[in-house]
Computed example of a mutant assay.
Amino acid sequence: MYETIKLNLNNLKNNKIFELTVVAVIIISALEIGAKTFTLSNTAVSVTYILDIFITLFFLFEISVRFIADDDKKSFFKKGWNIFDTLVVAISLIPINDSEMALLARLIRIFRVLRMVSVVPELRVLINSLIKAMPQLGYVILLMFIIFYIYAAIGSFVFADINPVLWGDIAISMLTLFRIMTFEDWTDIQYETMEVYPMSWVFYLSFIFFTAFAFLNMVIGIVVNVMEDERSKLRQEKESAKNVPTIEDLHNEIQELKHLLKQQNSQSNTRE
């Protein structure tokens, strides 16, 4: 009985229509959360309340299907995305009306939109790539901070008398340099200092070259390399999953063996 239910739920979990339905419910959940930020009529509030109950129950059903259909239930909660989905669903079950946990429950409901990441494999690859790239990015960020610190110290020493609002101390100078790196009206800052120091353009262009060009390309290169590794792992997992027989395949093979045994028994009985 249990194996039959497990087989049916596994077929449901792998069904494309069911996967698209989950994605559609996540999108509806996002729209419902956005609708609550507007001033709604009493009818609309009732509709969103009923819709919220339906979405919560659907997510509870979906996570239950995934857990029951999983072959290795001991490892189910060892996966980060399964833990995230379960926490979001569990906290969504908390009643939010007249409760001290109302604000937390509402905030958690916002994170239901992130379930799109756990449902779509390509999005999981992107997030996993960013997380795994963080150790390598840490050294790039450290080097960028050193460059920021050196240029901020130079800027505060040289340009503080020109514009103390932008170059008053090293902390303000670093904020100004971040504005320059993002190209937010940086030419106005440059032309202001060039009126006193005509060669100050070297300061700005060299800083932009190091940060906006060199370091940005380093970050992109690291993320792309990690992403390629994650995609290759995903392809290998898909290929290995194809080679591993599913419960449905084993069930079909058992049925075929039973059919062959029946044929052999009938043949032996006719001979006798």
Rank of each mutant, 00 (worst) to 15 (best):
M1E: 12
M1Y: 12
E3G: 05
L7Q: 12
N8I: 14
L9N: 08
N10Y: 07
N11S: 07
K13R: 01
N14F: 03
N15R: 01
N15P: 05
N15Q: 01
F18I: 05
E19S: 10
E19L: 04
V22D: 02
A24K: 04
V25N: 03
I27R: 09
S29G: 14
A30S: 14
G34M: 11
T37S: 13
T39M: 13
L40V: 05
S41H: 06
T48I: 03
T48E: 01
L51H: 00
D52G: 10
I53T: 14
F54H: 00
I55Q: 08
T56P: 00
T56M: 01
L57D: 02
L57Q: 03
L57E: 00
F58Q: 07
L60C: 01
L60H: 00
F61V: 02
R66H: 12
F67T: 06
A69K: 02
F77P: 03
K78R: 13
G80R: 05
I83Q: 08
D85T: 13
L87C: 06
L87F: 11
V88H: 04
A90H: 02
N97H: 06
S99V: 00
E100Y: 14
E100S: 15
M101W: 13
A105C: 02
R106T: 07
I108C: 06
R112W: 04
S118D: 03
V120I: 15
E122Q: 12
L123Y: 10
V125Q: 11
L126N: 00
L126K: 00
N128L: 09
S129N: 04
I131L: 11
M134W: 09
M134E: 07
Y139T: 11
V140C: 07
I147R: 00
Y149N: 07
Y149I: 04
Y149C: 03
I150V: 15
I150Q: 06
G155A: 15
S156W: 02
F157A: 15
P164L: 07
L166M: 11
G168L: 01
D169C: 06
D169R: 02
I170V: 15
L175G: 15
T176Q: 08
L177K: 01
F178A: 07
R179N: 04
I180D: 01
I180H: 02
I180M: 05
M181W: 00
W186A: 02
W186G: 05
T187W: 10
T187N: 11
D188N: 13
E192L: 13
T193S: 08
E195H: 11
E195T: 12
Y197V: 11
P198E: 06
S200K: 06
W201Q: 12
W201M: 08
W201P: 00
V202K: 15
F207I: 13
F210M: 15
T211Y: 04
T211D: 12
A212H: 12
F215M: 10
L216A: 12
N217T: 13
V223T: 14
V226I: 10
R231F: 15
S232T: 13
S232W: 07
L234D: 14
R235C: 08
E237V: 05
E237G: 00
K242V: 04
P245S: 11
P245E: 09
E248V: 04
L250W: 07
H251S: 14
I254R: 14
Q255F: 03
E256P: 01
Q264E: 09
N265L: 03
S266C: 08
S266L: 12
E272M: 12
E272S: 14
E272K: 14
